[in-house]
Nucleic acid binder design. Structure first.
Length: 542
RNA sequence: GCGCCCGUAGCUCAAUUGGAUAGAGCAUCAGCCUUCUAAGCUGGGGGUCGGUGGUUCGAGUCCACCCGGGCGUACCA
């Protein structure tokens, strides 16, 4: 629908005002009297043209050539809005379009042939995923879905590190639990990983090896087993909410492949690094950032910045058109350095989109659950999925803007009732399926022959809503804002439920019933497709 | 101190490049099932959009300052 109005307005504007920069946008007005789509173009040209916006609007309308079978009327309203009204027969015809395209409806080819890489989760295998990781995971996977829907071919990537201090501590934590299980009077350090899963691993190793590991170092079998177990756990949790990464990139490989040294040499060649206090610094202040930062510590060990830069270079070299990083807000200080470094090396950083989501506050029993990995005081993503279900978890994260400091109400998530917003859409879908079953028993079939009969307010509103789905997917995908799809689907479900209460199907005259069945099919298609974008299932019964 | 994010109905959150009367869910109150799923529908109450100035035809949205909260601000990741 936006396509068509854009198509008819653009030539009219170019003809009238060839030398003026125009920003043409269309809104969906709240008020029914304001048409199906509306543009403020005349208001926005007001200043440049120094003319009354209503006069400008009148001139534009006069210049627009349109098909009267599609557009019923174009009106000037208020201070100078131009409102477009579609004909009800055109609106009705979108029902057929939707059903014809089926599971493909809503997809766009705008970015066909382009490749995107979405890197998300990327938690090191030191413990189970928490609710916080859940937001990152859902956000990343849904962003990836959206990109696929607008044409990209997408790789989902997980960047991890199984070396370094954290992992040594993990291994040693298991070793301590192992020795404790063997009966050794050994104290468990307070800053070690306190989680139950560590104890279980220690015990498991006792069952498997008896006391044979007593003199093993932390970094051998203890660390390896811990890492393996953690990763299995993480992958299992992700799979439960429908997430599978196609690439697992080990930070360690950047060292073994010499990528780190390469980058280091490059900085040196370009004169962008220098030594001070036995450390190597990057001249970020010369690259427009606030201050220089250490990239190699005086111990000879790189800081996280260096491998991060090397990793992004690797991604760049894999020739993606779009690179997406999903971070929690605790990382918001790290990416400007990486971006500045990449830019200095000639990489086009406009290809990188960094999505930073804010933290999740978890509440249970009306109280905030304080998360602490070290104290093992957290709710794991796994527990949450088991208790609330994958659909609820995915929908809860997807319904909020990533900028919102969202609250995750565990009690609400667990409720299998109308208080839980996910079911509103799923129920609409199940209802439609139920109608389909009933129609089949009655030998009623959907038909596109008499779509013009879909003329009640409820029918028209539902169809108009369904017709906007492709616009929403495109907007949401380009802006990387999954919550818009969620919000849209709530409106779709609402429009359907209203239609359902007002418009009977089975008892209606056959032609009306057939047309309404076609509309039901279209609504089912949109709801199912929309939920698929969000990674939520569409149940046939509830 | 500085940087990013947030402050909107009792609660959780929307509000499409600055647009028309600021919306939805939950909660609350009043109605609606002998007919396709009541996990639904209809209606009511509930707001100085944190505050004060400014920009303009128009500001929840942009700018300045202030108040309050989250996350950062490492030779941790």
């Amino acid at each position: 629908m936006r396509n068509y109005v854009t198509l008819i307005c653009t030539p009219a504007l170019d003809e009238l005002y060839p030398d003026i920069e125009k920003k043409l946008f269309f809104d969906t007005p709240q008020n029914d009297g304001h048409g199906h789509l509306s543009t403020n173009i005349a208001l926005s040209l007001n200043k440049q043209l120094k003319k009354n916006p209503r006069e400008i609007a009148a001139a534009i309308i006069a210049a627009i050539k349109y098909d009267p079978a599609i557009i019923e009327k174009i009106e000037i309203a208020g201070p100078g809005f131009i409102n477009f009204f579609f004909t009800s027969s055109y609106i009705a015809s979108t029902v057929k379009t939707i059903c014809d395209e089926g599971t493909e409806y809503g997809k766009s080819h705008k970015y066909s042939g382009k490749r995107a890489n979405v890197e998300f989760v990327s938690a090191n295998p030191t413990g189970p995923l928490t609710v916080g990781h859940g937001r990152n995971a859902v956000c990343g996977d849904t962003a990836a879905n959206l990109l696929e829907w607008i044409g990209y071919s997408v790789d989902r990537e997980y960047y991890f590190n199984n070396a370094g201090r954290q992992m040594r501590v993990l291994g040693d934590s298991v070793r301590h639990r192992y020795l404790q299980k063997l009966g050794d009077a050994i104290e468990f350090p307070a800053d070690y990983y306190q989680g139950e899963y560590i104890t279980e691993l220690g015990e498991l190793l006792v069952t498997e090896y008896g006391d044979k590991l007593r003199n093993e170092p932390a970094e051998g079998v203890f660390k390896d087993r811990a890492e393996q177990a953690m990763f299995e756990d993480i992958k299992k949790s992700l799979k439960k909410i429908g997430i599978e990464h196609s690439v697992f990139f080990n930070e360690n490989s950047l060292y073994t492949d010499g990528k780190i040294t390469e980058v280091l040499n490059l900085f040196k060649e370009k004169g962008l690094s220098y030594e001070k206090d036995d450390a190597i610094w990057l001249k970020l202040s010369e690259l427009g950032n606030e201050q220089d930062k250490v990239i190699v510590k005086s111990t000879g060990e790189p800081t996280y910045r260096l491998p991060d830069i090397a990793y992004h270079i690797d991604k760049f070299n894999r020739n993606y058109d779009l690179l997406i990083d999903i971070f929690g807000s605790d990382h918001n200080a790290t990416y400007p350095d990486v971006m500045a470094a990449l830019k200095s090396m000639g990489y086009d950083t406009s290809k990188v989109a960094v999505l930073i989501h804010q933290f999740v506050t978890v509440t249970q029993g009306g109280e905030v659950v304080k998360m602490s990995t070290r104290k093992a005081n957290y709710i794991t993503l796994d527990e949450l999925i088991d208790e609330a279900g994958s659909d609820v978890v995915r929908f809860f994260f997807n319904m909020r803007s990533i900028n919102s400091h969202m609250n995750f109400d565990v009690d609400l998530a667990k409720k299998q009732s109308d208080e839980n917003p996910v079911f509103y859409m799923q129920y609409a879908h199940a209802r439609i399926c139920s109608i389909m079953r009933m129609a089949e028993e009655q030998k009623l079939e959907a038909s596109f022959e008499n779509l013009a009969l879909l003329s009640t307010k409820e029918e028209q509103k539902l169809i108009i809503n369904l017709g906007f789905f492709p616009d929403i997917v495109l907007q949401s995908g380009e802006a990387l804002e999954p919550h818009k799809v969620a919000g849209y689907l709530m409106e779709t479900a609402e429009a359907f439920h209203r239609f359902y209460t007002q418009c009977r199907i089975i008892q209606s005259p056959p032609q009306v019933a057939s047309a309404r069945l076609a509309l039901c099919l279209a609504a089912k298609t949109v709801i199912a497709n929309g939920l698929r974008v969000l990674g939520v299932s569409s149940p046939e019964r509830m």
